[in-house]
């Protein structure tokens, strides 16, 4: 174990990420026990950003696997280079390829030279340890989740034609989920867990100040308080995320606003609320003066 929870918090802050104790403790546990870190929470609360920031903190390259419906091991782990295999077979048939019989060519085209490396394989074959981000895992199906278990628990993968490939260096793995479907207990129990919620006003102010060090103090507070108020309104369907409050402040800065008044709100509300009904609802209460 090389760091403590306060040290993690400090390092993240130095790289522009304001983290709470719970998240820092989860990172500490994940690092201490060589476990993947599973982060759940609403969209836009900084789940993906934590992997990027950890890559900066640890000075490692970030390898990202963006999950989606229908993703399988050929997209995530590796795929046989079909075209290269065909060309090798053609070359062999015409007598211009490598020497040997049918068995030799069969063995040859199912070797690592014919393998196209995808993010998971790249992350464990890298000489230099990396940060592996498996983003939006909840978009995948259960089979893919089960396939990941071997990698997450043992840091190895098994390719039937080649055998088991063990990690050259252990990646620091971050998995994120928006909760579109519940993840299995088998996966959860292999991970350190953190839930990220929307930040409170003071934390939001700290985040905004980190991003816009030169912004007007009062304007930053206005934005943070207005965003908190919008999030608290039950009729707003798509709650504003941290990224959207940053966008809102950026829009206000671009307009040269000093405070968030009615006019400024009307001009820039589309940066924070997405959808006609939400905008109407957001504009109905009195904005922060």
């Amino acid at each position: 174990m090389t760091e403590s929870i306060p040290q993690i918090k400090q390092s993240l802050m130095e790289h522009g990420y304001i983290a709470d104790e719970g998240l820092c403790a989860a990172i500490f546990v994940a690092r201490s026990l060589d476990r993947p870190l599973l982060i759940e929470g609403a969209a836009g609360v900084g789940k993906t950003q934590i992997a990027k920031t950890m890559a900066e903190v640890l000075g490692r390259p970030l390898v990202r696997l963006q999950c989606h419906v229908g993703i399988d091991e050929t997209r995530a782990l590796c795929e046989w280079n079909y075209q290269k295999q065909l060309l090798a077979i053609q070359a062999h048939a015409s007598g211009t390829g490598a020497a040997g019989g049918a068995d030799a060519i069969m063995e040859s085209i199912f070797s690592e030279a014919f393998l196209l490396e995808r993010p998971l394989l790249r992350s464990i074959r890298s000489e230099e340890p990396v940060v592996l981000l498996i983003d939006e895992l909840d978009k995948t199906d259960e089979e893919f989740e089960a396939f990941l278990l071997e990698l997450l628990a043992e840091y190895q993968v098994t390719i039937p034609e080649i055998g088991t490939i063990r990690a050259v260096s252990k990646p620091f793995t971050v998995l994120t989920s928006n909760g579109a479907r519940p993840l299995s207990d088998a996966l959860r129990r292999r991970c350190a867990y953190a839930w990220l919620d929307y930040p409170d006003t003071e934390k939001e102010i700290a985040i905004l100040k980190t991003r816009f060090p030169g912004a007007e103090e009062l304007l930053v507070r206005d934005v943070a308080e207005a965003v908190a108020e919008l999030r608290a309104q039950p009729r707003i369907m798509k709650k504003p995320s941290i990224a959207e409050s940053i966008d809102w402040l950026a829009a206000l800065e671009a307009l040269g606003a000093k405070r968030l008044g009615r006019l400024e709100t009307e001009a820039t509300i589309s940066a924070v609320l997405k959808g006609r009904a939400d905008i109407e609802e957001g504009l109905s209460p009195k904005p922060v003066e």
């Binding site: 929870i5 104790e21 719970g22 403790a25 207990d185 867990y193």
Partner: peptide, 19 residues
Amino acid sequence: RPTVRTGLRAMLAKSRKEQ
């Protein structure tokens, strides 16, 4: 105490409900 609490929670509670 807070470190023990948050550390054990990250390790043992794997959903918001479990937390």
